[in-house]
Computed example of a mutant assay.
Amino acid sequence: MIKAEATVNGIISRSAMMKIGKDGKPFTAMTVKVDVTDRNGSGISVEISVGKDGYDTNEAAKLTIGQRVEIVGTMNFKKRTEHLYVNLSAKQIALNPASQTDSVTGDLEFKGTIGKHIDRKTDKNGGNYQIFSGFSTEKVAETFEFTWVRFVRFSNDECKALVPSGKVEIKGELELGCYQEKLNLSCRVNEISEWVKQQIPNMNQNA
């Protein structure tokens, strides 16, 4: 599981329209484009699918292509083959925000598995930090999709949960980046703990 409570500042690339959800209720749908750059200054445009409960005709009329908006909501990520899709369930949408710069900020929550390698390093001031990656797994039809996140943890404290192939729950600062024209997820770790999956009770077992 990977999700984030995020704030997105970007340009509407598909105007707002009304759609009907699986529950039969209307919602507002649109797409927002955000430019994401790498360390070398090159970058990609990320299309974020936005949905907001309910539909207001007057509000939708203002949410047109080319308008800059700032949106607060819950962000989810969906990996399909080589493409990472980004969805945002909006709580607030503001037109003409003070900042005119594309950005995505927020708090990431991750439940998954650490990769096989953990790099332990020391900075110029003698502080310790760790660099590692982790993945979350989603079953799609008969296959599995793996969404990876790159983590950086600045701490001198040992963490028993931070071991290769360990199951962890992590909370930290979200960062979107790109590498070889593909969207990457990164996180600066604030909290890390062992993740214990909840066992599904056997409904056939007698009490």
Rank of each mutant, 00 (worst) to 15 (best):
1 M>T: 11
133 S>K: 09
192 I>Y: 03
92 Q>S: 11
62 K>M: 04
151 F>L: 03
42 S>K: 14
9 N>H: 06
194 E>T: 11
70 E>A: 08
164 P>I: 04
164 P>R: 01
162 L>V: 08
190 N>K: 06
89 S>H: 05
202 N>F: 04
182 K>M: 10
177 G>T: 13
182 K>G: 06
105 T>G: 05
98 A>I: 11
149 V>R: 01
180 Q>K: 12
56 D>P: 00
110 F>G: 03
168 V>K: 02
62 K>F: 01
203 M>H: 10
136 S>E: 09
31 T>S: 15
95 L>T: 00
8 V>A: 02
10 G>K: 00
205 Q>T: 06
183 L>S: 05
86 V>F: 01
182 K>Y: 07
47 E>D: 15
111 K>R: 06
189 V>Q: 01
120 R>K: 12
44 I>D: 00
143 T>E: 15
20 I>P: 00
34 V>S: 02
156 N>F: 08
185 L>S: 03
71 I>Y: 00
134 G>Q: 04
105 T>M: 10
81 T>G: 11
65 I>G: 04
40 N>P: 06
187 C>E: 06
19 K>T: 09
148 W>S: 07
69 V>K: 00
150 R>G: 09
163 V>R: 15
158 E>H: 08
84 L>G: 02
49 S>R: 09
107 D>I: 12
65 I>D: 05
87 N>Q: 13
155 S>E: 12
149 V>W: 07
80 R>W: 12
132 F>K: 01
15 S>H: 04
9 N>E: 06
189 V>S: 02
170 I>C: 06
